[in-house]
């Protein structure tokens, strides 16, 4: 099978069976590396690190990285297209059905419950993002000291920016990201590394 076609099909498979976001694709990528020999487990963990330190959805960054390493720019494009193709078909179908039954009261009833669950899931992911950023579980497991595991500086920055968000609701979210980046660089510069 030509390499580009194989890339597309393998990522199509990942896109079809990974439900729940970028990190859900990780086990599939691990298996892909083992079967094809395109990349090692160590390279995969590098890819995760780069994908997390660049803008864009994690799953798409991972697909681009694997595709590029395997077959250059065409590989990157085909891996991403393969990964998004199944969801594109499913979402367009769901969206079409919803538009058709927009006025059905049962759809409205279902969404009444669904929104509450969606809010619960979003609150849960919010807490886990906060925990991952502000509390280092690895350090806690090693030292048993919660104070050392707590990212005090990050917590202060998050609180300051949260207050800023409430005070200046018109300011664009991107401005806060930029401020965070500048504060991070400034902080490390001041403490000398």
């Amino acid at each position: 099978m030509p390499l580009l076609l194989e890339l597309f099909l393998r990522f199509f498979y990942v896109g079809l069976f990974s439900v729940g976001g970028g990190l859900a694709t990780l086990p599939f990528l691990k298996e892909m590396g083992e079967t094809t020999g395109w990349f090692t487990a160590a390279q995969l963990s590098d890819m995760v690190a780069v994908s997390e330190s660049t803008p864009g959805p994690l799953g798409i960054n991972m697909a681009t990285y694997v595709g590029f390493q395997t077959a250059g720019v065409p590989g990157a494009i085909l891996a991403v297209l393969g990964e998004v193709a199944p969801a594109l078909v499913v979402i367009v179908a769901v969206s079409h059905v919803l538009m058709k039954f927009r006025d059905s009261k049962y759809v409205a009833y279902a969404f009444y419950g669904l929104r509450a669950a969606s809010a619960g899931l979003i609150a849960m992911s919010c807490l886990s993002v906060a925990q991952l950023t502000l509390f280092n579980k690895g350090v806690f497991a090693e030292t048993g000291n919660p104070v050392m595991a707590f990212n005090f500086w990050g917590f202060v920055l998050a609180v300051v920016l949260f207050v800023g968000l409430r005070k200046f609701p018109k300011l664009h979210p991107i401005a806060f990201v930029a401020f965070g980046a500048a504060a991070g660089i400034g902080f490390h510069y001041l403490i000398g590394g």
Binding site: N151, L157, A158, F176, I185, F187
Partner: peptide, 15 residues
């Protein structure tokens, strides 16, 4: 360095 500041910013934004 930048990401040490971007991550807390993202926490504030998503909350």
């Amino acid at each position: 360095w930048a990401f040490d500041g971007i991550r807390p910013a993202v926490v504030a934004l998503v909350i």
